[in-house]
Structure formats: C-alpha cells, structure tokens
Design a protein around this nucleic acid. Structure first.
Length: 464
RNA sequence: GCGGGAGUGGUUCAGUGGUAGAACGCCACCUUGCCAAGGUGGAUGUCGCGAGUUCGAAUCUCGUCUCCCGCUCCA
C-alpha cells in the first residue's frame, strides 16, 4: 500500500527505469539496487556535478581513482580490521542486541573499562560474566563477531591465497597515494584529492531503499592542511558542501548541519559535522565532514615504514599534514535529490482531470533527459522534422523522442523522469520553421526557430 | 542472528475451497492535435517455492525462500 512518500518514490523508480531491485528474477538480494536506463544518467550527473565542483573548478584539488582491492595491511593500519569487528551479544529474553564492549564500559565505567578493546574477545567475555541485559535483566548470549568488511581471496586457489578485503571506504586509496600524487602534481599544502568509487560494508542493518546498502558509492575528498589550519578548512568545506546541495536545488529548509558529539566520533576522527537532509524516513546523514587529523598518514608510515611527511620549503619544516574529509554518498545524495524533487499534484495541472500527477522537479543539470522531442502527430512529415532535430541535439545532451499517445500523456511521461524541456513539432513548423519549447516547472511555452533550439537549450543548461 | 509484517500481470489492489479479476499503465489501429480525452482490439499471472489434506487449493496445513519494518551504524 503506497501510502507514504518513500514507497511512492520506490514505485516511480521501478516504473520509469530509475532504480530496480537487484537480481529481482531470483527474488532479489538484500538491499542491493540496480540503476536503470534513466537512473544511470541521474547517477552519472550527480557524480559529474560533484567532480566539476570539487576538481574542475578548483586550483587546490586533484582527482584519483584507486583500486577497490588493496594490500591487507592497509586495513590493519587504518584501524578497520580492529574497529570494523563489532562484538555483539543478544538478550535471550527481550531479544535486544548490544555491543559487548559498550555494555562492559557502561557498567564498569569507573574501573578498567578504558582498557577494554573490542578486539580483545577473551578479556571482554570475562568482563561480561555476570552482566545481565540492561533493559530487562535477562540472560545474555555469548559474544558473536560481526565483521563489517567483506572478505575475499586474491589468487585462484582459495586456501593458499591471501585474504583481501573489499574496501569499506575509498579514503585509504587516497592516503596510500599521498606521496605519489604530491610528487607527480607538485601540489603544495593545502591541497586535496578527490575520488569517486564503490565501497562495501557488511552492514548489520541495511535498508530504506538506497539510503543504506552494503555496496555503495562514495564521493570522498581528503584535504591535506597544516595542522593549525585544519579546523578553519573544516568550516570552509562544511559550508562549501552545504552550498553544493543547495545550488543543485535541494530545499535549504530540509538541510541542516549537525556536529558530532565526542561519543559518536569514528575511531580516526577528532571532529566531525554532518550535513543532514530530511528524508521521508526522517533527518539522516547526507555527508560527513571529518577532521581525521594526521591519524591515517601516521598509521601508514608506521605500518609501511615509508615516510609520508611533507616538506614545507617556505618554512623549511617537515610535517605530517592534517586531513579534512568531506565524504558523501552518491546513492544517498541521489535519494535526497529524488525525494526533494518529487512532487505529486492531486488532480493534475491540466484539464483532463488526472488523479495524481507526478513531477520530478530535478535540477536541469541532474535531469537524466534534458530535452524530449515530441511531434504533435505521426504524419505530415512531423516525425521526420523531429528526428532531424533530435540528431542535432543528441550530440550535445541526452535527448528522448516520443510519438506514442496524446501530447498530454507524453508530457506526463517526461515530467515523471524530470525532463526539464519538451519540444513539440507541430503543423505550423512546416510553415514557420519553429517549434514550441515547454518548461516543466513553469508550464510556459515559447516559440523558437528551429535553427536556434540548440543554443537556446545549451544556454539554459549553462545558466543553471 | 532475533522479533514483527508481507509475497496474486509493469504498478496499486480485490479475490477465504469450485473456470484467476479490476483500475491504471503498456502495444496496435481509428479519432484527436499542446497538457494523463474518446473508441475498437490486444499482450502480460506456473497466485514466491515445495510438499500435504481434498474430487478440486491463490484460498486450509506443514516446511522453505525472499523482501520489507525494527534492534548495534554512518556515505
């Protein structure tokens, strides 16, 4: 029963080829989703807009595309082998689940809890003896390990091959390439490295459509600064990233910034602020901007034995930079853009009395299809003119052509996938060599000469 | 892993033991020609899967799978 917005969005996504449940003919596989013929453009556009903003338009940023599989030691150095292993216990009575180390800490907070490490299972199990469920007082199960990293094997023979992990974040690919990038680009502090790529986490609780999935795509920046400038850059990036969402059409009333409390910081961060969006499921994180300090570079220096410090030739000083990390989720961002653009008009805008009219008010730069060409009739040479126009436009932008059904129906179809402009070729076109361009949001129609259509649309796209 | 809910055309749903339905969507033709119009015709379902009960199962029983929602997380 599609009585909430998230369901409506999921249905629209399936109907219109934006996002499909993965492996659906086999009954689906938990919380993985495939981007369809329309969705793939939306996703690419989100990534392209990000790349343009953080790499193309800046002097202090360069790009990178590192491999998903990395040396296993990377994840020891980064702390993920340790802290992505969560020791969990369940209450046998009320069935609630707890992190064993948190439980021990909260109950024995005055004693040796500080030394309690999640990976020290034997010690944990011992400390847990006698502890009952804090909710209902029931008996707890023994500790079970939840490893958040996907494991696989490098090499054809499983038992002799090395265990490798699918990366749980793209960041480490940047840190291990810090020297390579700095040497090859001759960048001086402060500068940053941007990367878009897939990451994998065996989440205990995935869900909410593409909000949390086990395979997801990240857009991450590691911005290297002098330690004393780190927090200043943290603030700058926070504002910068916030503006990015607003510039791409997100309603500012549905965005907020939320600094993390100390208790919720990741193991590598000393400060973090989230950009949150009010999804149909409530306020949730869209992007985190963390101060990772010099933690990662120092860890990799210790593990690899290589010097990753930076020599500042203006001060003659050698230092390990601090890192500001704006880390966003592509899928999550896309969901925010979708949810924010989703508009349902009961009764419809036209006079035919449609029940519900769905308009995806996507920013034109994100719109999967920029312009649809619709001949008013399938005769009189109109389709030929329309096809000719399409072959001119499609060299520059994603186009669609539709001659099926009434013109109103065709507008509806384009509205549902967020196409900003529809061009109709009508019988007058034969006389005046002009077409009508209709705007998705204003419903305004403009008569444009055929030879000016291309520049007209391209100007609109650049203006926004 | 535990608890709860749910699986019937593309979508939303009806159908409580007797020939699988509707609406919307989709396709073709006619009509119309600028905002889901109308007409005619059409396609799409092994009712999640497997057993059982029964003359007969979408429907009852058992098993199983999957998805969704909640429990520790964070993009």
């Amino acid at each position: 029963m599609a009585d909430n917005k998230m369901d409506n969005i999921v249905n629209l996504c399936k109907r219109r080829g934006i996002i499909f449940p993965s492996s659906e003919i086999y009954g689906g596989i938990g919380s993985t989703w495939d981007y369809g013929p329309i969705g793939v453009h939306l996703k690419n556009n989100v990534k392209a807009a990000w790349w343009k903003a953080v790499v193309q338009e800046r002097d202090d940023m360069v790009g990178l595309d590192a491999a998903i599989l990395m040396h296993p030691d990377v994840w020891k150095a980064s702390g993920h082998v340790e802290s992505f292993n969560d020791p969990m216990v369940d209450c046998k009575k009320c069935k609630r689940r707890f992190r064993a180390d948190h439980l021990v800490e909260s109950i024995k907070k005055d004693s040796d809890a500080a030394e309690m490490k999640p990976e020290d299972l034997a010690h944990l199990e011992e400390a847990l003896a006698g502890i009952m469920c804090p909710e209902c007082g029931g008996e707890l199960t023994s500790i079970r390990q939840f490893n958040l990293m996907f494991k696989t094997f490098m090499g054809p023979v499983e038992d002799s091959a090395a265990t490798v992990y699918l990366r749980p974040e793209t960041a480490q690919g940047i840190f291990v390439n810090f020297k390579n990038v700095q040497n090859s680009t001759r960048k001086k502090l402060p500068f940053g490295i941007a990367q878009i790529g897939k990451s994998f986490r065996n989440e205990i609780t995935p869900g909410n459509f593409v909000f949390r999935t086990r395979e997801f795509e990240q857009m991450e920046i590691e911005f290297f600064t002098r330690p004393e400038e780190a927090m200043e850059w943290h603030a700058k990036w926070l504002q910068d990233r916030y503006n990015w969402y607003v510039n791409l059409g997100i309603n500012p009333d549905k965005l907020r910034l939320r600094p993390h409390g100390e208790d919720e910081l990741a193991h590598y961060a000393c400060a973090c602020s989230d950009i949150e969006y009010e999804f149909p499921i409530g306020w949730s994180e869209l992007e985190g901007i963390a101060n990772r300090t010099d933690y990662d570079l120092k860890q990799h220096m210790a593990m690899s034995g290589k010097d990753l410090s930076y020599f500042d030739d203006t001060t003659g000083e050698r230092l390990v930079p601090y890192v500001i990390e704006p880390s966003g989720g592509v899928d999550r961002g896309l969901l925010a853009f979708l949810a924010d653009a989703y508009d349902e008009i009961s009764g419809g805008r036209g006079d035919a009395g449609a029940e519900n009219e769905i308009v995806l008010r996507l920013h034109p730069r994100l719109a999967p299809i920029k312009v649809a060409i619709l001949p008013l009739a399938k005769k009189g040479g109109l389709p030929e003119i329309a096809h000719a126009l399409q072959s001119e436009l499609r060299k520059h932008m994603m186009t669609d052509y539709d001659e099926k059904g009434s013109i109103g129906r065709r507008y509806r179809r384009q509205d549902e996938v967020g196409t900003p402009w529809c061009i109709t070729v009508d019988f007058n076109t034969l006389e005046d060599q002009a077409v009508t361009i209709r705007d998705r949001d204003t419903m305004q129609q403009e008569r444009i000469s055929l030879d000016k259509v291309k520049s007209f649309i391209r100007e609109k796209l650049e203006d926004c």
